[in-house]
């Protein structure tokens, strides 16, 4: 009887050891030193107030949406695949313009300017093709468009210049790097431009800053700093996109740690609109536009939707 008890105890011990070893093997075994850790920076996003709220999300029937633009309080235009979708202010589709090629960027005023890899094509808001501008060459790689007065500006990642056109597509000049030692740096095709009464705001993403230029190409002020902190820009090439708000503030978007942020007119950090918690870690490039009411329209290519953010009244 005594021998039988010993055998039972030994069996139980053996089973316990096997279970312990198998559980231990199934658990995390990769040393912390091998893991890439940016959790503290994600955590920092949760420590700040979010004065903007996502008030709507417009799903897009596009496989690969690329860019968004808005005309004041008028229509919103989204390009992707080989179409341009003209939407009303509530996101309802008004028109679908078939395109001959893959669009890269878009701007809209009374005319819809669609940027392809090496050229710009102008369409009326009714969908009629108005003009196809001359090709910018084999090296061209257009990534951004902006309208300032009666001129159109296009950022060309391939040739590291900002092209200047009149409304008919006649080239009026180009903006090059301000200097070789402190000029444009683009490790990846993240070269955007926005415009307001102060001129052009060009994203110099490799230097993680925004630079002001006159239409003639004279560089003015610049803002932005390289930092993993919330008020700076991190990664190889951020911000990726920019838009100007009606009151002169800026909205920027970033990749890596996906973020949408608002900066004051002097370039100081004002607010986090949405971070990686809201957008998801797998969000791709996020184009952005702002309408006349100050609504921020973020094109979430991974989610194939437009997220609408509106500033919430301050309870205090």
């Amino acid at each position: 009887m005594k021998t039988r008890g010993i055998w039972i105890v030994l069996t139980l011990v053996a089973v316990a050891v096997v279970i312990f070893l198998s559980l231990r093997r199934g658990g995390p075994r990769v040393p912390q030193a091998y893991l890439y850790d940016v959790e503290q920076y994600r955590e920092a996003e949760t420590q700040v107030p979010l004065p903007y709220k996502e008030t709507a999300r417009w799903p897009l029937a596009l496989r690969e949406p690329r860019a968004v633009a808005v005309k004041g309080d008028g229509p919103v235009v989204v390009v992707g695949d080989r179409v341009a979708l003209v939407l009303d202010a509530a996101g309802e589709e008004l028109r679908r313009i078939e395109l001959a090629d893959e669009p890269r960027c878009v701007a809209v005023a009374d005319v819809v300017y669609v940027g392809f890899l090496d050229r710009i094509v102008a369409y009326g808001l009714d969908g009629e093709k108005q003009a196809e501008w001359e090709t910018l060459g084999e090296q061209a790689y257009l990534t951004g468009l902006a309208i300032l007065g009666d001129e159109v500006f296009a950022t060309d990642y391939g040739q590291r210049v900002v092209w200047r056109f009149d409304a008919e597509g006649k080239m009026r000049g180009r903006i090059r790097s301000a200097s070789k030692s402190d000029g444009f740096v683009f490790p990846s095709p993240t070269f955007d431009v926005a415009a307001d009464g102060d001129g052009l705001w060009v994203v110099n993403s490799g230097r993680r800053r925004v630079e002001q230029y006159s239409p003639q190409g004279k560089r003015g002020t610049m803002w932005g700093r390289s930092s993993m902190e919330l008020d700076g820009f991190s990664g190889c090439c951020n911000p990726t996109h920019i838009a100007v708000m009606p009151d002169g503030r800026f909205v920027t978007t970033e990749k890596g740690l996906p973020r949408v942020k608002v900066y004051a007119a002097d370039g100081t950090f004002a607010a986090l609109v949405a971070g990686s918690v809201q957008l998801g870690q797998d969000a791709g490039l996020l184009d952005v536009a702002v309408d006349a009411a100050g609504r921020i329209l973020v094109l979430d290519a991974a989610d194939r939707s437009i997220r609408i953010y509106e500033e919430q009244p301050d309870d205090g």
Partner: peptide
């Protein structure tokens, strides 16, 4: 190199 992929993660997340 030991194949830990730490650099791969950083490059893919923030770079090209």
């Amino acid at each position: 190199c030991i194949g830990c992929a730490k650099c791969v993660h950083g490059c893919g997340m923030f770079g090209n």
